[in-house]
Design a protein around this nucleic acid. Structure first.
Length: 272
DNA sequence: CATGCGGCCTGGCAGC
DNA sequence: TGCTGCCAGGCCGCAT
């Protein structure tokens, strides 16, 4: 689920609501996520103040006083909602942060592929974040970087772009969109793509992510922002999920195939 | 080291 | 209607 635009949407949504609040208690109803929620989390964070909320890759970072940071990953099906008032727990509501000033942050994740981690000191050195590639919206993400890094790689361009050590935040939806916009077939070998095409790809990755952020993310089924609103970027998708429908650029038919075990969507006319 | 695949979980949906 | 099988936005670990 949440790829970069969705996590960014949640980040921007909750930041103004929780910065400055301090923690009364954290309720953990089901610690068994992809990794176990740390034992004693509530005691560790009780009384600490939220200093800032940021995002790195697909992780949401909540920075607390006392130099510690909560890292939240939403996996495939996770949502994080701010509730002004208490609401009865439902199935799959695994954790909730309750603030002294009122208000609470509820973590729901039916498939439990998400994670809640605690980092002391610089969170970027936490094992989950160390070793990640550059942010796609940063200056480090350039055509030259992709070109040099991809030399001699035989993996598909689709897989290469989705690897978080290449560049972070691009998942199965946005990789289809960016490759479609750049006119590159998803099965092309990463190591055989020219500088010129990488330049176009970098531009299109940035463009699609920015447009998706502006739309509040993509809601296919259950994604929602911090206040429960869906994202509207699904209306703008040009390739993902459109197999059999006409390409909006050339009128050809959008195809689907499986690459690396994941479904991929492309236009055989526009992409090669 | 690079690559490819299965597994983790649950829910929704198509097809029978 | 009810069952089965397949698929899903991510990521890790293992085998080759």
């Amino acid at each position: 689920m949440p790829e970069l635009p969705e996590v960014e949407t949640i980040c921007r949504g909750i930041a103004p609501l929780i910065v400055g609040l301090n923690i009364a208690e954290i309720i953990v109803r089901e610690p068994r996520l992809r990794v176990l929620i740390p034992a004693g989390l509530s005691a560790s964070l009780q009384g600490r103040t939220v200093l800032a909320v940021s995002r790195r890759a697909k992780y949401l970072l909540i920075h607390f006083s006392g130099d510690c940071t909560l890292l939240i990953h939403l996996g495939m099906s996770g949502t994080l909602r701010f509730l002004a008032e208490p609401l009865p727990f439902e199935c799959h509501d695994h954790a909730e942060i309750i603030f002294n000033q009122g208000g609470r942050l509820r973590f729901r994740d039916p498939r439990r592929f998400g994670a809640i981690l605690l980092a002391y000191g610089d969170p970027l050195t936490h094992p989950a974040l160390a070793g990640l590639g550059p942010e796609p919206l940063s200056d480090e993400f350039t055509a030259e970087y992709l070109y040099l890094r991809s030399r001699k790689k035989t993996v598909t361009i689709k897989f290469f772009l989705m690897e978080q050590k290449t560049v972070v935040g691009v998942g199965n939806i946005y990789v289809s969109e960016a490759l479609h916009a750049a006119g590159i077939a998803p099965w092309r070998q990463a190591g055989k793509i020219s500088r010129r095409r990488y330049a176009l790809l970098v531009k299109e990755v940035r463009a699609v992510l920015l447009r998706a952020i502006a739309a509040g993310g993509t809601t296919l089924r259950d994604f929602q922002g911090a206040t429960g609103k869906p994202g509207y970027f699904s209306q703008e998708l040009l390739a993902y999920g459109r197999a059999g429908e006409p390409c909006r650029k050339c009128g050809g038919e959008i195809q689907s195939m499986r690459i690396g075990g994941r479904s991929s969507f492309y236009c055989a006319v526009c992409q090669s």
